[in-house]
Design a protein around this nucleic acid. Structure first.
Lengths: 274, 274
DNA sequence: CTAATAGTGTCTATTAGACAGTATGTT
DNA sequence: AACATACTGTCTAATAGACACTATTAG
């Protein structure tokens, strides 16, 4: 039919299959601290996500993850990088692909497939240069065998949604997530949030990604708090210290002034395998 | 600007962003047995992948994963299901999304983003109804700190490729895979194979997905062999039996005739948490 | 001194790894 | 009997969980 690839490509009709649009959604996660009135206590930490209030249709006035269309001349993973830059003014951020959502009717405008990414940022590097309609929400994430209950709170507004887990045993992906309750989030973004938090919770124990959310110097108490808010449970000090011992290195800096024993400041050690 | 969502949707211009094409690639994995001449020995098992020889441009005469275009009116995950049906005549197969590849120049025809899926099948259910240009290749997968070396062999042809692992530490996904050597596989399919095998190797130890590759009744020796070919290493019998003990249930069937002690046949137990 | 966090020692329980042994078919 | 796999008992090493204890500061 064609005697060479060039010839084939020249004759190729790109409209053989109707084309579609693609977007990306970014789950930007971080850890926030709350001021503590008691000078002795440590400031409480929260696990938080960045949401944007939509001011255009569809889903006008609902909250959604930052995102946007993939440009025709842009690599897939460059789109979330671009949007992250626009939204937070940060670059060189930890970014990981989560999942691609492609149900026919997931967007009322037209056929849009969306690839979601998860980004982890250190909020201390972010000097209040947030986009005007963006806001950090503290995350409460409760998961059991059957449901995931998520509450997002930015101090002014509370967003709650619930996801049902259907165990599909052997025939397909382990769980199928279905949104059971949601009235303030746009699109299928509850699913993205659940997928991302769940992924982070798993990965925190076998990778070093937490350190993307930490400043350069930190105390082990702070690091433990971050683990605790992400995992949603308390950890025992000695066990925690054993586990992270070879991931961090002690510096000669200390943090004092808290009405209690000062703590050594540690730094992430780019641990070579040994 | 618009007073209602309906009005907005009516006026919406779907060509605001140039649209693109999407395809899906399916990594179909299974386990093959080889006839053993010594009546006493167990038949040797291989980990295997289904490839298709391309008879059209681009990449004419190279091997690739089964795949095809996503139709405009088809849910994303329905495309791999449809292709799986066409290719193997099987439905209700374990299917899991792997990764979405979207570099601008990954396809010479035009801008195509591709979402890859992994399917696990029990080859015994597949009664030689393979598509004419498809073939099962035995997989040898060697991974170390820096490289992944894969050899695929269907008895007639050998395909080798090599992938480099770049540790990206904290700034992005843990590893970036780069194809270092490949001359017989089309597209970025070496990356898909590596991603899938790597994922399966991890998941085999904390999920029950292996049973998708097993017939209804099997001996623990066979099951152990499957674990071994997937993990690429020998396991110790007592440890293996301890681990899978609560995932399987013994039946009153036995398999005898092998010149050695007959073995009990087991079945997958849809283990409720206890 | 007190409240609060920092940091360590050690016992126990659970799990993983290793090896050696017994059991039982077919030719 | 010999070979090959089936299956189990048990010791040891490594890891995880729990608790109690000491250390040190600001007020």
């Amino acid at each position: 039919m064609y005697s060479s690839e060039e010839e084939f490509l020249k004759a190729y009709d790109p409209n053989q299959f109707e084309r579609l649009s693609m977007t990306t959604d970014i789950l930007i996660l971080s850890v926030s601290s709350e001021e503590e009135s008691n000078y002795r206590k440590l400031s409480k930490k929260y696990f938080s996500v960045l949401l944007v209030k939509r001011n255009t249709y569809p889903f006008k006035d609902k909250w959604c993850l930052p995102g946007g269309f993939i440009r025709i001349d842009e690599n897939l993973e460059d789109a979330p990088k671009r949007i992250l830059k626009d939204e937070t003014n940060l670059h060189n951020i930890y970014l990981e692909q989560l999942y691609t959502y492609g149900d026919v009717n997931r967007d009322p405008r037209m056929r849009i497939v969306s690839t979601s990414y998860m980004a982890l940022v250190d909020k201390t590097k972010l000097k209040d240069t947030l986009a005007p309609n963006a806001s950090w929400f503290n995350v409460t994430y409760l998961e059991d065998e059957k449901y995931i209950d998520v509450t997002l709170d930015n101090g002014e507004e509370v967003i709650k949604f619930k996801i049902g887990k259907t165990l599909k045993e052997l025939t397909t992906d382990r769980y199928k997530f279905t949104v059971l309750k949601n009235d303030k989030l746009a699109f299928d973004h509850p699913l993205v949030i659940a997928a991302g938090v769940s992924r982070l919770r798993n990965k925190i124990s076998y990778t070093d990604i937490v350190f993307n959310m930490m400043p350069e110097y930190f105390t082990l108490g702070e690091l433990q708090q971050v683990y605790e808010v992400i995992l949603g449970k308390k950890l025992l000090d000695p066990a925690f210290r054993r586990i992270i011992a070879n991931k961090v290195e002690k510096t000669d800096k200390v943090q004092s002034g808290g009405g209690h024993r000062p703590s050594a400041l540690f730094r992430y050690k780019n641990a070579k395998k040994n």
